[in-house]
Structures are given as structure tokens and as C-alpha cells.
């Protein structure tokens, strides 16, 4: 559990982070979102003490993080940045093992762990371990970046606009991967982004920052249905508001149980937005719904989306 308590950061007369208090629970996927200059990156970098703060405190599991050596603290937290920052003179394997090397793991164990992590990020270990960063595509590099951050099994994963520089297709794939990894590992993730769709797709809770102030914190659905201010409403999006609403609800919520529909079914865990998209492309007004094992559960009707 991470608590930010009345945290502020001032640069001269400019207040980058202004009196922010928030508690992030264990295992949460917590997105911090806001326009450029809203202080979201600064807030993230204070959590691993890359930036010192001016006032307030940060506690992890109840302990003030100032009580740790910054290096020890950072080795317990994964850190992924937009510019990736792989070490160009090291192989993929050595990059992934960076923190383990710092922790003094034996070479053979580092190798095994790197193999495991490359597999987790869907990079063939035998093909990739000996490569250098410049031989990889942007998406592959960030997969290595994520693997490196996860190497020591961190309590918290800090991600600073990790997919912001990637093309839309690669970004979407990596979003799916990180959602899966979060589900499987239960690691707490604090994720900074300026992309509302990304936050809605991934986060269990979202905090909106504006000029360093925390404007609203809530689940994606809460932000959409009960925006605290006009700023939040604007930021969440006015035009495609309905579409965004659909994207935070699952097919299961509008299921008509027991009804059978022919044709390709959709998973109950998929978002209503995906379901709408499928209906439009397939030219149909109802889809069969199946559970994660492929067993039919019922049907989803177009009319129910507007309910």
C-alpha cells in the first residue's frame, strides 16, 4: 500500500504538484492522468525518489520512504519510461538482469530469470537474449523495458507514459500484455498517461491531475458518470462520451442469459465497445456470448447497449 500525504513539489514560484493526498491499495492498477505539465510525471518520480519533494510525505506499507536508501527503494520498484532507456552497450539478457546484478544474484540465476521474463513478455528467449537494443523494434525494446522492470519481482511497478512513443497497433498489444501481467502477478501498478482511452482500458482506479492538483479520483465508470468538475468532463471527452462509457463496461453486464445466437460469439469479459464494433462490422444486432472457456452463456442485443 502506498500513501501520498499532502505531497507538494515547488520549483521556485511554480508548484508542480500541489498538496496531493491519495492512497493506492495493494494490487491496484492506478492510472494518473492529466494534460502536459499537470505534474503527473513529477508525482511518479517522487515515489521512487528520483525527485525530492518540498512538503508532505510518502509511505509504503506504513513506512516513510525517506527511511530507505534511495537505491534500495528503487530496486524494490520497477520503473518503465516512455523513452525506454535500455543500455545500448548491453545485451537484452544483461539489460533484463540489471537489478538482479545490482542485488548480487549469481549469473546462472539471472540467466534463468531473464529467460522466464522474456517468455512472459512473449519474446523468444533464445532469439532475443543475445541481441543488442538497436537491433530491436520499438515495441520489442519496450517489452524488454517492462521485463527489466519486473525482474526482481517488485512490490510496485511505476510506468511513466510507457507506451506513448509506440505506434497504435504496438501500443494496443502492449496494453493487453500489461493488463494480463497485472492480472497474473497482482503487482501494484502506478501508470502515468495522457491518453484517456488507455486509462479507461487498463486502470482499476484513475486520478486526474490539473495544474498539480488532484481533481478527482475514482473508478473509470465513476469518472464518466459523475465527473467532479467541467475540467474532468472535458478531459474524459464530450463527443465520444457514450463510446467511452461502453468501453468501461463488460459484455457480462448486459447479458441475456440462456439465449442462443448463431455466428462467432464474443467473450463475456470483452468491453461493450468491442461488442458494438463487432456488431457494426458483422452487420448484426445480436451476438452470442461465451465464458473464458468458450461455453455459451447467452446473447447480447444492440438495443441493450443503450439501456
Amino acid at each position: 500500500m502506498i500513501e501520498l500525504d499532502r505531497l507538494s513539489k515547488r520549483y521556485g514560484a511554480v508548484t508542480a504538484v500541489d498538496d496531493v493526498s491519495v492512497t493506492i491499495g495493494k494490487g491496484e492498477f492506478f492510472a494518473v492522468i492529466g494534460p502536459s505539465g499537470s505534474g503527473k510525471s513529477t508525482m511518479l518520480k517522487m515515489i521512487n525518489r528520483l525527485i525530492p519533494w518540498s512538503a508532505g510525505s510518502i509511505r509504503i506499507n506504513g513506512e516513510d520512504i525517506l527511511r530507505f536508501r534511495p537505491e534500495d527503494l528503487r530496486r524494490r520498484m520497477g520503473y518503465v519510461i516512455q523513452s525506454i532507456g535500455l543500455f545500448p552497450h548491453w545485451t537484452v539478457e544483461r539489460n533484463v538482469g540489471t537489478v538482479l546484478e545490482l542485488l548480487g544474484w549469481p549469473r546462472a540465476k539471472i540467466r534463468d530469470r531473464a529467460t522466464e521474463l522474456l517468455g512472459l513478455l512473449k519474446l523468444d528467449p533464445d532469439r532475443f537474449r543475445g541481441k543488442y537494443p538497436h537491433q530491436l523494434s520499438g515495441g520489442e525494446q519496450q517489452r524488454v523495458g517492462v521485463a527489466r522492470a519486473l525482474a526482481a519481482g517488485p512490490d510496485v511497478l511505476l510506468m511513466d507514459e510507457p507506451f506513448g512513443a509506440l505506434d497504435p497497433v504496438t501500443r494496443s498489444t502492449l496494453q493487453t500484455e500489461i493488463a494480463r501481467i497485472h492480472r497474473e502477478s497482482g503487482t501494484t501498478i502506478i501508470f502515468v498517461t495522457h491518453d484517456m482511452d488507455e486509462a479507461l482500458k487498463l486502470a482499476s482506479r484513475v486520478a486526474i491531475l490539473d495544474h498539480g492538483r488532484l481533481v478527482q479520483t475514482g473508478t473509470p465508470l465513476e469518472l464518466l458518470t459523475a465527473p467532479a468538475t467541467d475540467f474532468v468532463r472535458d478531459f474524459v471527452g464530450r463527443e465520444d462520451y457514450g463510446i467511452k462509457l461502453l468501453s468501461v463496461e463488460a459484455v457480462a453486464s448486459r447479458l441475456r442469459a440462456g439465449e442462443a445466437v448463431p455466428g462467432e460469439p464474443i467473450a463475456a469479459s470483452a468491453s461493450l465497445r468491442e461488442a458494438l464494433s463487432r456488431m457494426v462490422t458483422q452487420g448484426t444486432d445480436r451476438l452470442g456470448v461465451v465464458d473464458s472457456d468458450g461455453r455459451p452463456l447467452g446473447a447480447l442485443h444492440l438495443a441493450d447497449l443503450a439501456r
Binding site: L50, L73, I81, G85, F87, P88, T98, R148
Partner: peptide, 10 residues
């Protein structure tokens, strides 16, 4: 970026 990552890794 490499320096920031290096510091961030601890």
C-alpha cells in the same frame, strides 16, 4: 534516457 533508467533501477 539510459541514465534516468539506470538511476530508476537503483
Amino acid at each position: 534516457a539510459a541514465i534516468e533508467a539506470a538511476r530508476g533501477m537503483g
